[in-house]
Amino acid sequence: MKDYRRSICSTCRHAPYCSLTTDMSNISSCSEYVHHLDTGEEPTYMVSIEMMGNNRQRNKRKEPVLN
């Protein structure tokens, strides 16, 4: 992949074929940018009891809770 200086395109999976733009020299934000952590396996949220605080009963997304 080309080294697009000053552009987030340098690490975007779509860059080689992106239909949105050919000028990838200075892109600082893009809704189509593929988040690194979204490209492989989804990470599980690791939330300690302390962090949950008063929201303890609201762990609707079933994140694994680490003590």
Binding site: M52, G53, N55
Partner: peptide, 17 residues
């Protein structure tokens, strides 16, 4: 002090505030 610092970041998972 710990629980008074939940708002040090936003965009947290729902379960973490």
């Amino acid at each position: 002090e710990r629980s008074t610092n939940m708002h040090v970041v936003t965009g947290k998972p729902i379960g973490a505030g």
